[in-house]
Design a protein around this nucleic acid. Structure first.
Length: 323
DNA sequence: AACGCGACCTGCGAGC
DNA sequence: TGCTCGCAGGTCGCGT
């Protein structure tokens, strides 16, 4: 479930099932899914067993669960205020990762990689399973670190002062209430690259992948090759507003899924694929052009070794000297 | 800096 | 029935 809306669908599903539950045991069925956990499966398992899931947090496409240690001094003293989680179970879904809540009676999925057994929870499923066909995703335990990514024009970190270390290098995403267009624009203007490459750069704005980059650019009526250092402030604002709108709409539809690989924690697919205007629509009419009687078809081009979909009429390619 | 690649993987459909 | 090829919602790290 790759881009932001799909990861957020998972986060929302997960939080009601796992918050407050204790991880009783862990099965690592394929250590390749722990590639980013440097100390290996035993360490991974040891770090998780006996901890309690405090929350489920997301930034961009990274998802993590801050963990409370059962045996910590603060917890033993009953001092909830100081029992602040210091570590988190991090998940990145990559291209094909899934987090599924399953009853123990459900047979193992073909690509089941890691199984977490949880303390009993009022009839809720007792297993959290990480399933990943292509193994580009993974799980690992990491520290929670303070981050200062407000910067000029940025806002102070309000809801979550701590960020999982491996997600500290990425920027806020457009659905983050503290996302700053001002900061985005000032960073964007310093880049000398094309707009789509910038949108896909998680250090500049996170959560946007190939689908939502194309959809955001289409909504904003901007071409992917528009040079970032010459972009107008109004255009930068428009593409971010478009990204936010399209991702909110996608979220409301349960995300985008073309097949059973992209499902929520209960295994259900979203239906935003029906609302896509550019991505995957090669040869089909541009809906915006059609609405005003213009005949235009969506074009597919290779860009950054992947497909880009644009309308040649309402997203004109930049020409030298213009813009 | 920025970019172009290859690496990491499995599976599916198209075409022969 | 096979085979090869191209393609897929991502990220990281290496060269230049």
């Amino acid at each position: 479930m790759p881009e932001l809306p799909e990861v957020e669908v998972v986060r929302r599903g997960l939080v009601s099932w796992v918050r407050g539950r204790t991880i009783t045991s862990v099965d690592v069925l394929d250590p390749r899914s722990l590639r980013r956990h440097a100390l290996g499966p035993e360490d991974f398992i040891g770090n998780l067993q006996g901890t309690t899931v405090d929350d489920v947090v997301r930034r961009g496409k990274f998802l993590w669960m801050p963990l409370r240690e059962a045996g910590s001094a603060a917890a033993a003293a009953g001092d909830a205020a100081t029992a602040v989680p210091r570590v988190a179970l991090m998940a990145h879904l990559g291209m094909s990762g899934q987090l599924l809540m399953q009853d123990p009676s459900v047979p193992d999925e073909k690509h089941l990689k890691v199984r977490l057994r949880l303390s009993p929870g009022n009839g809720m499923p007792d297993q959290l399973r990480f399933v990943d066909q292509r193994i580009f995703g993974g799980l690992f335990v990491t520290d929670l670190v303070p981050t200062d990514d407000g910067g000029p024009g940025g806002l102070a970190e309000s809801p979550r002062p701590l960020i999982a270390a491996e997600a500290a290098h990425i920027a806020r995403d457009p659905l983050d209430p503290a996302f700053s267009v001002e900061l985005f624009y000032s960073r964007l203007r310093k880049r000398r690259t094309g707009l789509k490459r910038a949108l896909l750069d998680q250090g500049l704005v996170s959560g946007i992948g190939n689908i939502y980059a194309d959809e955001s650019l289409w909504r904003a009526g901007l071409h992917y090759a528009r040079p970032t250092d010459k972009l107008r402030r109004s255009e930068a604002e428009r593409v971010i507003t478009s990204a936010r709108d399209v991702m909110r709409d996608a979220l409301a539809a349960g995300g985008t899924s073309f097949d059973s690989l992209y499902v929520n924690v209960n295994g259900a697919s979203g239906y935003f694929d029906r609302s896509l205007n550019a991505y995957g629509r090669e040869g089909q009419p541009c809906t915006r052009c059609a609405a005003v009687g213009i005949n235009s078809t969506i074009r597919r081009e290779q860009f950054m070794n992947r497909s880009s979909y644009t309308c040649p009429v309402c997203q004109p390619r930049p020409r030298n000297g213009r813009w």
